[in-house]
Design a protein around this nucleic acid. Structure first.
Ligand code: MN
Ligand code: MN
Ligand code: MN
Ligand code: MN
Lengths: 218, 218
DNA sequence: ATTAAAATTTAGACAAATCTAAAAATAGGT
DNA sequence: ACCTATTTTTAGATTTGTCTAAATTTTAAT
């Protein structure tokens, strides 16, 4: 497996949101920041290797083998992110770029030892679930803050947008995963929210609320 | 810098034993397990980038910039080796292969944090010195066991051959870095040595003795 | 059913890193 | 000084992953 092949499989997986379903050439090209013609070339190669299903003009989808490979890359990516935050004091906005490199290191022993060192974490610093060694996913029961009803209460458990600017914004406003959150008011005009978080009150735009995942209290 | 370029610089540095001096095309080809014609091609590219001095038929040598780059790769390689042994319980015969991959990860912050996590080690698991951030080398005052006089005493501080088979052999015979060692007798016939190590006595072939570095006691 | 727009594939090119085979330069022995 | 063996370079090909431009197929609107 080349690094490029691994990145394609990961992109296809992410575009399918974990589900099966066919992904378009253009969507993959955009995600990979490459051209559609390059995607077609790679689709043929991956199909040849039994990692994707590909029929001309019909889109691309992962085979079981392709899904397994994608999950193993994602597992490595997220474990490395946890490692960087927990053991090396990286902030959650710094880890992605480095994990993009580390996820391609080939050593089963290495990643298993990292997993053990971190005490087998279930989620990465952005709240995304870490697949187990055998590719099992533990997706959390969560919803976007923007989709929760007024007066609902919950715990921040993840971000939808994990770009550095958004994460830094959250830091600046002391919004962190694990914080409890309660919707005090919803503004009809701009759909901004008045919320209570860890004692204090603050106002949050719709854009922010639609990128924050919350686990509702029972 | 591509991974291949980095590997060439590292190979040239190692072949020069850290000193300046011109290295032959064939020597580099052998070290890199590639063909001389490939080395010539790379020599031109690296010369273009100011990393090596190269004149047709005159051999190849590192510029100051090339040396700095080589040292930074070696620094990363050796720090990762220490990390694998100290934090992840790898054995010293397992680390090299993985470090060959990890040494190419591009993140200054990452390697500095690993350095700090390890408490700024001076030597790697094979006794090789770890260059500082600014490329300073602390080569130890050591000599091959095979070149020490009879009755001399010292401490094992490194291996010349760090191949897995040799390292496993040392493990099996409980010969480890840090052990004290005393030469009891030298056999003229086959140049084997009778030594005392950590209480017990054992016989060591010349081949072994000429791959073990010892720091002589004052 | 036509047709225009969008998506996708093909054809041909290119850069990086490698190879083989052939040519050129160097080094060493007489 | 000459010849030969060795070393090194060149020329041309290959693989991987990418690109642009052109051709083809699909889609969706009339
Ligand atoms: Mn990430
Ligand atoms: Mn993440
Ligand atoms: Mn090593
Ligand atoms: Mn080493």
């Amino acid at each position: 497996m080349t690094r490029s092949e691994e990145n394609y499989l990961k992109a296809i997986f992410h575009l399918g949101n974990g589900e099966a379903g066919s992904i378009s050439t253009n969507a993959i090209a955009e995600q990979m920041e490459t051209k559609p013609s390059s995607v077609t070339d790679m689709a043929k190669k991956l199909a040849e290797k039994g990692l994707v299903h590909y029929k001309k003009y019909q889109g691309i989808s992962l085979t079981d083998a392709g899904t397994r490979t994608a999950l193993s890359i994602i597992r490595k990516h997220r474990l490395w992110e946890v490692f960087l935050v927990k053991k090396l004091d990286f902030t959650w906005d710094e880890v992605h770029e480095v994990a993009e490199q580390l996820e391609h290191i080939k050593s089963e022993k290495l990643i298993d030892k990292i997993d053990a060192l971190l005490d087998f974490p279930k989620y990465d610093p952005h709240g995304d679930p870490i697949p187990t060694k055998d590719g099992k996913f533990m997706e959390r029961d969560k919803q976007l803050l923007s989709e929760m009803p007024i007066h609902a209460q919950g715990v921040c458990v993840g971000v939808k947008d994990s770009s550095a600017p958004f994460l830094k914004f959250l830091d600046k406003n002391k919004i962190a995963l694990g914080n409890t959150i309660k919707i005090l008011d919803k503004e009809d005009f701009d759909q901004s929210l008045q919320i209570q978080m860890e004692g204090r009150e603050l106002r949050i735009s719709h854009q922010i609320a639609s990128n924050l995942y919350v686990k509702k209290n029972d």
